[in-house]
Amino acid sequence: MKPPPFEYYAPTTVEEAVAHLAEHGYDAKPLAGGQSLIPMMNFRLAQPAILVDLNNIAELSFIRPEDDGGLSIGAMTRHQMVEKDAQVVERAPLINETMPKIATSQIRSRGTFGGSLAHADPSAELVAVSVALDGNFKVVGPQGERWVPANEFFLGLFTSVLEPEELLVEINLPPFPERTGWSLMEIARRPHDFCLIGVVAVLTLDEKDQCQQAKLVYLSAGDGPVEAHQAAELLKGQALTAEAIQAAAETAASADIDPSSDIHATAEFRRHLANVLARRALGEALERAISNTQ
């Protein structure tokens, strides 16, 4: 199908874009890479009266190393650019590993880092990864800017804290702590398709190689990214034996998440996958954490 008519603006600065959004409120939608919004418009599931195209705002496309060892990524930086960037490999290895798993090359050449987050799709890899990495989101509106931690940004299905007149402009990733390992695992019927379920694990070890901090964040397991708090709590301060990891994975799958059934998989099957994936992801994260201490 074809999208319904809309008014089109293509500002070249954030200020101008925010002014358009402030003027039109809920009638307007920002257009980032368009790899989710345009399909929704083609199906007429979304019919915004006004599109504010962000693709000509050069100031929103950047990858900037920070003095503290972290990394900042502009919201309109295309996935492909993040995927191929050497600073991302060095400073945010989990992001580097995530990029090729996002959709297909034809989507990554156009889709944007911030667009994927602002869309708040619970099956999007970056949504879960940004929570697992304690990312911070810079949001600009008519009243100025504010910073929102990733774990407070996502409110539910395709819903974030962004007000209609606000733009996500930058994502800050804190420095990757030493003795830290990571893993992203997902199961999809076809490679690069939306996954049935997936999980991100980030483990930091203390000097005695015990778990100092664990993060386990699921994608496609609820209306937003789902943090497995109980499982993480079980691991904290523990030696990461196979038994401890197994117990945490079982807790995550049975107590922390509440997946639903659909035509692709039953809730029961998703719980089974959640358990298996958590076990594997924690195992891989542990191996990497150990090799990062040597």
């Binding site: 089109y8 293509a10 034809q106």
Partner: peptide
């Protein structure tokens, strides 16, 4: 026409993109 099949792939400034997921004005 929703970015799944890839039949409409073109090269846009040298990169493969879905031409059904872009507006001509862009």
């Amino acid at each position: 026409e929703h970015g799944v099949c890839g039949a409409c792939t073109i090269l846009f400034d040298g990169d493969p993109v879905r031409s059904c997921l872009m507006f001509a004005v862009q």
